[in-house]
Amino acid sequence: MMMYLKVFAVGGLICAAGQLLLIYTRLGSAKILVLFVTLGVFLSALGLYQPLVDFAGAGATVPLPGFGHLLAKGALEAVREDGLAGALTGGTAAAAGGIAAAIALGYAVALLFTPKTKE
């Protein structure tokens, strides 16, 4: 039960940080997403993100910095296994599942649905 509370709190706080950037800066959502992913990659490479994942599980992996963490973790592991080539393949390979799912589902949804105007 304690774990779920931590997931909720950490995930919520990362999103609230994003909201602060939305309100106080003119970055806009596209740039905030890029910022969060890149931040995730570098924090993870410095070994700072894994502790957060251990602490809060999906609270740290579901927000976009978690996507960056996945990329960085994949790259480092692949370098250990395959050397130089791993630096190129590792990140993308680790994130491939999520990306492919979004592409395939995006295409399927575009086939099935038509956008409606905003209420």
């Binding site: 939305l22 959502s29 956008p115 409606k116 105007t117 905003k118």
Partner: peptide, 18 residues
Amino acid sequence: HFSTAERQYRFPLEMGSV
């Protein structure tokens, strides 16, 4: 027209933009 202006100047209609 809201929906033509939106897709030309801003974001897709179904995007959760702020």
